[in-house]
């Protein structure tokens, strides 16, 4: 693994020493409007979130399921854009590392280096572009290295161990393991496929591995933490809870509790 030293790497190391998996909480900025989303993020932090992952909405999110698609669409309709999202991160002034999840065209359009540098100035520690594989990422990696922003890349259950190793070489933050075949959204169970994938990936690389897509329950988080995941990523469940007016903080707290390995 290539290493950079920033708040994200420090956080992951700290949790590892404490034998905890990280709770990575995702929420799309601007949903349903910017102020409410900042409020939700604050609740996620109060609930014990270790890494806050914020979405910058894109009009055509091909890796996202209906919940996040609809949220992105609403955020865009209410005027969300990267500039306002950076402003929101600055305002939030989080005590934990903040990472961005978005799609590559938003970086490309703003100028990749400009995007990374603006993100950094706002307090962002890591960036993931969901449709950017390592083959297309050289400009992105250069900008991230220059501004001390960690890179996060996705791996999937069908990514060969050989390719996992290759992707790990480009990853200075963590590997984002897609838990199952499909888009983002809640699922009932953590499949055996996911547990096997975690074990296989952990064997292939020392780079931290966080698991996302379909993780919504304490039981999911516990199983993944036990299987060796360095973090669990929860997103759609928070969007749903916020739509339903349920306590975000309580949900985060429950999930965080489940990441404490025995």
């Amino acid at each position: 693994m290539n290493s950079i030293e920033n708040s994200l790497s420090a956080k992951l190391r700290e949790l590892k020493e404490k034998k905890q998996a990280a709770l990575v909480s995702f929420f799309p900025l601007g949903f349903p409007n910017m102020n409410t989303s900042i409020d939700v993020c604050a609740q996620l932090l109060c609930g014990g979130t270790d890494i806050l992952e914020v979405g910058i909405p894109f009009s055509d999110p091909i890796a996202d399921g209906p919940t996040i698609q609809a949220a992105s669409q609403q955020a865009l309709a209410n005027g969300a854009n990267p500039k306002k999202c950076f402003e929101a991160v600055r305002k939030l002034n989080a005590s934990v590392p903040v990472m961005i999840l978005t799609y590559y065209n938003l970086l490309y359009k703003m100028g990749v280096e400009n995007f990374v540098s603006e993100a950094k100035k706002a307090g962002v520690s890591a960036i993931l572009a969901a449709d950017l594989p390592i083959e297309e990422a050289s400009e992105f990696e250069k900008a991230c290295a220059k501004h001390n922003v960690a890179t996060v890349f996705i791996i999937a259950p069908n990514t060969s161990s050989e390719r996992v190793k290759k992707i790990a070489l480009h990853t200075t933050g963590f590997l984002y393991l897609m838990a199952h075949f499909g888009v983002t959204g809640e699922k009932d169970n953590v499949e055996d496929l996911t547990i096997q994938a975690v074990k296989r990936v952990k064997k292939a690389t020392n780079t931290p591995v966080c698991v996302g897509f379909g993780i919504s329950k304490e039981e999911h988080a516990r199983k993944l933490a036990e299987a060796g995941a360095d973090g669990v990523i929860v997103g759609s469940a928070f969007v749903k809870a916020s739509r339903a007016g349920e306590s975000i903080e309580a949900l985060a707290r429950k999930l965080k509790h489940a990441t404490l390995k025995k």
Partner: peptide
């Protein structure tokens, strides 16, 4: 051109 896709599609 290129291949700007989520990793799961790469294989």
């Amino acid at each position: 051109g290129g291949k700007f896709v989520p990793e799961v599609i790469t294989p």
